[in-house]
């Protein structure tokens, strides 16, 4: 058992390094040009947002519509700090400040609201996301509606590392004891409470972690796209993230990855059909939802363990 554990970890490490090397090589060779590089950064930032929301929606089963709010906190923390001390230093400090603020805000919001269930929670988080946006809109340090104009400090390796790290954190959380408690909350809250699980505690835990990672994504956005404005973090942004999660399958991180990539590329290829783009995009979503109501992957995950199991099973059958 222990042996295999090591083997899968090594496999993951190899996969990460391999994908990094391939992407860098493609960039060096000019196959991924400047256009696709920005598409790639958008996709990676969306992946971070999607998996952090997936932790709240898919694993813990709490329907949150305020994710753009946390992204906004992260983006503005990084943005304001970059204005104070330009360059990478300010950006990193901004990320840390974003973590602290978003964790605090998530705590304050989640303790009362996570006692609500289903639609009520969705509405409460929706309202809260708007509150954050309006606060940012009216502060002088954030430059109000005009937003902040920033230097690009984030490069591909940085976003890639952030994406890998957040994935590791979330996936490991999902497999840990608190993560399993979260899954039990998703499956049946009353039953898990009867089993002695402090459901509010685990819901808050997942919510705070999700919020912090969303704020990281926001910071990356600020460091990558030159300009942040309050109107970029409206309710629509939360819906965009939700679409990725539902499309990929709630509870499946692999699904979120695939969905973010598919939607990102789809969006890009449909650029040539400006007029009908949103229709085709919407149609694709409707079709997916009709034929795969649980999303592309449902709750399935890609793991090397299952891959090995399949191989060993085949071997067993052969013998």
């Amino acid at each position: 058992m222990k042996d295999r554990f090591k083997k899968t970890n090594l496999c993951w490490l190899a996969a990460i390094i391999l994908s990094y090397v391939i992407l860098t090589a493609l960039m060096q060779a000019g196959i991924i040009d400047a256009v696709y590089e920005t598409v790639l950064s958008t996709i990676m930032i969306n992946i971070i947002l999607a998996i952090s929301l997936n932790l709240i929606i898919g694993i813990t089963g709490q329907f949150s519509l305020g994710h753009a709010g946390f992204m906004c906190i992260g983006a503005y923390s990084a943005g304001v700090m970059m204005k104070q001390m330009p360059g990478m230093g300010g950006f990193l400090v901004g990320i840390l400040i974003g973590f602290v603020i978003s964790a605090l805000v998530a705590l304050i919001v989640s303790i009362p609201t996570l006692r609500l269930k289903g639609d009520y929670l969705a509405i409460a988080t929706l309202g809260f996301g708007e509150i954050i946006r309006i606060i940012v809109l009216n502060m002088t340090i954030t430059n109000g509606a005009a937003g902040l104009v920033l230097q690009k400090v984030v490069t591909f390796p940085f976003i890639f590392a952030a994406m890998v790290l957040s994935t590791i954190v979330i996936v490991n959380f999902g497999c840990s004891a608190p993560g399993r408690a979260c899954i039990s909350v998703r499956e049946d809250e009353i039953a898990s409470e009867a089993m002695g699980i402090n459901t509010t505690k685990y819901k808050v835990m997942a919510f705070v972690i999700g919020a912090m990672i969303a704020s990281l994504a926001g910071a990356l956005y600020a460091g990558n796209f030159y300009v942040i404005r309050p109107d970029m973090f409206t309710f629509n942004r939360s819906i965009d993230i939700l679409v990725i999660v539902v499309f990929g399958g709630m509870g499946s991180m692999t699904g979120s990855y695939i969905a973010a990539i598919v939607i990102g590329l789809l969006n890009n290829f449909l650029q040539s059909f400006a007029a009908v783009r949103m229709i085709i995009y919407g149609l694709a979503l409707v079709l997916i939802m009709i034929f795969r109501p649980s999303g592309l992957l449902g709750t399935k995950e890609f793991t090397f363990t299952s891959l090995f199991n399949r191989f060993s099973k085949r071997k067993g059958e052969a013998q």
């Binding site: 040009d33 400047a34 256009v35 590089e37 920005t38 598409v39 958008t42 956005y221 796209f225 030159y226 300009v227 404005r229 970029m232 890009n268 650029q271």
Partner: peptide
């Protein structure tokens, strides 16, 4: 804005 950045790069290309 994110889309606009991509398109600015594409127009240059």
């Amino acid at each position: 804005p994110a889309e606009a950045v991509t398109l600015a790069a594409r127009l240059a290309e």
